[in-house]
Simulated assay, not measured.
Amino acid sequence: MTHLDKTKKQAADYLILIVDDDTLTGQLVSHVLEQAGYQVMAATSGAQALQMSIDHQPDLVSLDVEMPGMSGLEVGRNLKEHTAIPFMFVSSHTELDVVKQALDHGAIGYLTKPFVPAQILPGFAAALARAEDIRRLQRSEINLTNALASGRETSMAVGLLIARFQVDRDTAFETLREYARSNRRKINEVARELLAAEEVFLPFAKLFREK
Rank of each mutant, 00 (worst) to 15 (best):
Q57F: 11
Q57M: 13
Q57H: 14
P58V: 12
P58E: 09
D59W: 06
V61I: 11
V61S: 04
S62H: 09
V65Y: 00
E66L: 12
M67V: 15
P68Q: 10
P68S: 09
G69K: 04
G69M: 07
M70V: 13
M70G: 08
M70Q: 09
M70I: 14
L73R: 02
E74S: 08
V75D: 04
R77I: 08
R77T: 11
R77A: 15
R77Y: 04
R77C: 11
R77S: 12
R77W: 04
R77D: 12
N78R: 10
N78I: 10
L79Q: 09
T83F: 09
T83K: 13
T83P: 05
T83R: 09
A84H: 15
I85N: 12
I85A: 04
P86G: 13
F87W: 05
F87I: 11
F87P: 06
F87M: 09
F87V: 11
M88C: 07
M88D: 06
M88T: 14
M88R: 03
M88F: 01
F89R: 05
F89L: 06
V90Y: 00
V90N: 09
S91N: 05
S92L: 04
S92G: 11
H93V: 03
H93N: 06
H93I: 02
T94Y: 07
E95I: 04
E95A: 09
L96S: 14
V99M: 12
V99D: 11
Q101E: 14
Q101Y: 06
Q101K: 12
Q101H: 07
A102F: 00
A102C: 11
A102D: 06
L103H: 15
D104R: 10
H105M: 09
H105C: 10
H105T: 15
G106Y: 05
A107K: 01
I108T: 11
I108Y: 00
G109W: 00
G109C: 06
G109H: 03
Y110F: 07
Y110W: 04
L111Y: 01
L111M: 08
L111D: 08
L111I: 10
T112R: 04
P114L: 03
F115L: 07
F115P: 00
F115V: 03
V116K: 13
V116A: 13
V116G: 14
V116I: 11
P117Y: 01
P117C: 04
A118Q: 09
A118V: 05
A118C: 08
I120P: 00
P122N: 02
P122S: 04
P122K: 03
G123Y: 02
G123T: 05
F124M: 07
F124I: 13
A126D: 11
A126V: 01
A126W: 00
A127V: 03
A127C: 05
A127W: 00
L128G: 08
L128R: 08
L128Y: 00
A129L: 12
R130S: 14
A131W: 02
A131V: 10
E132K: 13
E132W: 13
E132C: 07
E132A: 12
E132P: 12
D133E: 11
I134L: 14
I134H: 11
R135S: 09
R136D: 07
Q138V: 14
Q138D: 15
R139H: 14
